[in-house]
Simulated scan of single mutants.
Amino acid sequence: MISDVEKIKNSEYYYVPAKVYLETSKYLYASPLRKSHGMTLSILPMNLLLAFSLELYLKSWLAYCGYIKYTFSSRKFGHNLNNLYDHCLKNGMNNDEEFKKIIYFYHEPHKDFEYRYFDGSRDLKCMDFLEIITIIDSIEDCVDKFIGASARPRQYAHELDLFLLQREQITETK
């Protein structure tokens, strides 16, 4: 049987980047540059970050439940938000209408790489970014309560800040 510490460590592999992608999308959403140039420049990267954040929160939940990393690279899971969400539901996640709404919204375009390789052949689905961010924030809260990892992203961010500061100091001395 896997310990709670190991469960948290396994789920953090997905939780930490999910949190970072979500927070980065918030920065982009609030950016004065985005507001001055309109949504055109940010629609693809914001959707990409938000869809990946959603995927990784779901994988974090499942990793805490004992799903192993190589399972997620299979065709059954991969970027398939419907399958990931179905398995989360089978493993105790709330069957929330808002969660289903965002899974449905992102499932096809995320699975089909629409936000990464835009060729203009399809119309991009649109939804209010603030609504999307609010729903994914709720999912993050749900996952955090389940796996108990909320302090870790701040710790990683602090460690990254220290690393970058040390690199900057080394570069200055050269």
Rank of each mutant, 00 (worst) to 15 (best):
T71C: 13
T71D: 15
T71L: 13
F72S: 00
S73G: 05
S74E: 11
S74P: 04
R75S: 13
F77S: 07
G78C: 05
G78K: 00
G78N: 05
G78R: 02
N80V: 05
N80D: 09
N80G: 00
L81F: 08
L81E: 06
L81I: 03
N82E: 14
N83E: 09
N83R: 08
L84K: 01
Y85F: 07
Y85E: 01
D86E: 15
D86A: 02
C88F: 03
L89R: 14
L89Y: 07
L89K: 10
L89W: 06
K90D: 14
K90E: 12
G92R: 04
G92Q: 03
G92F: 01
M93N: 06
M93L: 13
M93I: 14
N94L: 15
N94F: 08
N95E: 14
N95L: 05
N95D: 15
N95M: 02
E97V: 11
E97K: 12
E97Q: 10
E97M: 10
E98A: 10
E98K: 14
K100P: 02
K100E: 07
K100R: 12
K101Y: 12
I102E: 03
I103W: 00
I103V: 13
I103T: 08
I103Q: 03
I103L: 02
Y104R: 13
F105M: 00
F105P: 00
F105D: 03
H107D: 11
E108R: 13
E108H: 14
H110F: 15
D112Y: 10
D112E: 15
D112I: 06
F113R: 10
E114Q: 15
R116A: 14
Y117G: 09
Y117P: 03
Y117E: 02
F118E: 12
F118G: 05
F118C: 14
F118R: 11
D119E: 12
G120H: 10
G120E: 07
G120P: 04
S121Y: 12
R122N: 15
R122V: 12
D123W: 11
L124T: 06
L124R: 14
L124G: 09
L124A: 07
K125H: 11
C126H: 15
C126N: 15
C126A: 14
M127W: 07
